[in-house]
């Protein structure tokens, strides 16, 4: 097995584990501390917007930041390009 292992090119499972963890841990850390209602707020906003404009789910971004001691809820919606004649 020793010799064969030298020629095998599959990435080690430890490296796979580390990569997966790096991503999920970073994602969970960024969500930490934000209120629990953010995902629900995002979904409901998306539904409302969807009634008027056909937007992609990823077009709605919600961020909670801090500025001068205030909490700032930042909402950005990128609308698809308007078609002429409507």
């Amino acid at each position: 097995m020793g010799l064969l292992a030298l020629f095998r090119k599959t990435p080690s499972t430890a490296r796979v584990a580390k990569e997966r963890l790096r991503i999920i841990v970073a994602q969970e850390r960024s969500a930490r501390g934000s209120p629990d209602y953010l995902p629900l707020l995002r979904r409901e906003l998306l539904e409302v917007i969807h009634k008027y404009v056909n937007v992609d789910p990823s077009a709605v971004q919600i961020n909670l930041g801090h500025e001068d001691g205030h909490e700032v809820l930042e909402l950005s919606v990128s609308l698809p390009e308007a078609r002429r004649g409507r």
């Binding site: 499972t13 430890a14 580390k18 963890l21």
Partner: peptide
Amino acid sequence: SGEMMSVDDVKEIL
């Protein structure tokens, strides 16, 4: 043998 994360891997992630 690459089957288990190393001390440094865990240290780096956390």
